[in-house]
């Protein structure tokens, strides 16, 4: 999708957090990305160094956790794994399901490095 512009908006958020907490730099930046988020993790990794260059996150490492694709069936109540193009219940085959996990594109946590040591935020 728009991995570079998403990366820039991610760096804006990280930079803001670092400034708010008086951090000198940033260590790990952890994202959670689901297969139905529209975000391609590999492209995100590729864009990250370009977006973070010259910011407090310049030396940081991007960690992307992949969210599983899971649905909960409204008919039989089962929670099952699904495929992006097939979100029906794997137990009963019903199509009345709710996505439990899989459309996330979240900034989960940021490791901030201050003079005294590192703090997780």
């Amino acid at each position: 999708m728009h991995e570079l512009s998403l990366c820039q908006s991610l760096i804006d958020q990280v930079q803001q957090l670092a400034l708010t907490h008086g951090a000198q730099s940033v260590g790990l930046v952890t994202l959670k990305i689901g297969p139905l988020s529209g975000v391609e993790p590999a492209l995100m990794q590729h864009a990250y160094p370009f977006a973070s260059a010259g910011t407090l996150a310049a030396e940081s490492t991007l960690v992307i956790e992949l969210a599983p694709l899971q649905v909960r069936c409204e008919s039989c109540g089962a929670e099952t794994e699904a495929e992006p193009s097939r979100l029906v219940c794997a137990a009963c085959g019903g199509c009345h399901t709710q996505l439990v996990s899989g459309d996330e594109m979240l900034l989960m946590s940021v490791e901030l490095i201050t003079a005294e040591g590192s703090n997780h935020v």
């Binding site: 998403l6 908006s9 991610l10 958020q13 957090l17 994202l31 959670k32 975000v39 956790e65 594109m105 979240l106 900034l107 989960m108 946590s109 940021v110 703090n119 997780h120 935020v121």
Partner: peptide, 19 residues
């Protein structure tokens, strides 16, 4: 993940959408 403490300190997760 949201409430997982990191390094023994209470972590305040960011949990903010990239959008």
């Amino acid at each position: 993940f949201a409430y997982k403490p990191v390094n023994g300190t209470t972590a305040v997760a960011v949990l903010k959408s990239l959008l």
